[in-house]
């Protein structure tokens, strides 16, 4: 077992983990952040996307020991008193159906907009290429991200 110290959604956690423990399993099983989910085993689907030190990462493809000393933001820590504009836009534009890809999709969109606050449709699509959705055909996800970009420019 290896000792790790990881800040998750603003709270410092010191834990013992097996070196083989995936960050996503650490989050789900040791920290109780079950909002972040696992969808595949080839780093393809992005359902497990979180922000690791502020940048999107697939938490199924990071070992918990690699994240030692880092700060993780999950879908559960995204909202403050109000929802993040990306969350609000996904609801407004019906950018989700079953919701399984949604935590990862939202976190990728948050990262995308932090890097490119004014993306074109093509840039939104490319920026989300690491996240698979089986329900929406992406149409409303793209609309959601575009709306979030507008909101964030306007208000915050």
């Amino acid at each position: 077992m290896t000792k790790v110290s990881i800040t998750v959604d603003g709270v410092l956690h010191e834990s013992e983990v097996e070196p083989r423990t995936l960050l996503v399993h650490y989050l789900r099983e040791q920290v109780g952040k079950v909002g972040t989910v696992v969808g595949c085993d080839t780093s393809s689907c992005g359902a497990c996307t979180i922000l690791l030190d502020g940048r999107s990462a697939k938490s199924c493809s990071v070992l918990a020991v690699q994240a030692d000393g880092s700060s993780v933001t999950t879908i559960e820590g995204l909202a403050g008193d109000e929802w993040h504009p990306v969350q609000a836009a996904f609801k407004e534009c019906h950018g989700l159906q079953c919701g399984y890809c949604t935590p990862g999709m939202v976190m990728s969109a948050v990262d995308l907009l932090s890097e490119n606050p004014n993306p074109s449709e093509a840039e939104i699509r490319e920026g989300l290429e690491g996240n698979l959705c089986r329900c929406t055909g992406y149409h409303n996800i793209v609309k959601s991200v575009a709306l979030a970009a507008e909101t964030m420019k306007g208000g915050k």
């Binding site: 780093s43 992005g46 996307t49 690791l52 940048r55 999107s56 990462a57 697939k58 493809s61 990071v62 990728s108 990262d111 995308l112 890097e115 920026g127 290429e129 690491g130 996240n131």
Partner: peptide, 8 residues
């Protein structure tokens, strides 16, 4: 790959 993979 994709943005997440490029970050890591």
């Amino acid at each position: 790959a994709d943005p997440q993979v490029r970050h890591r």
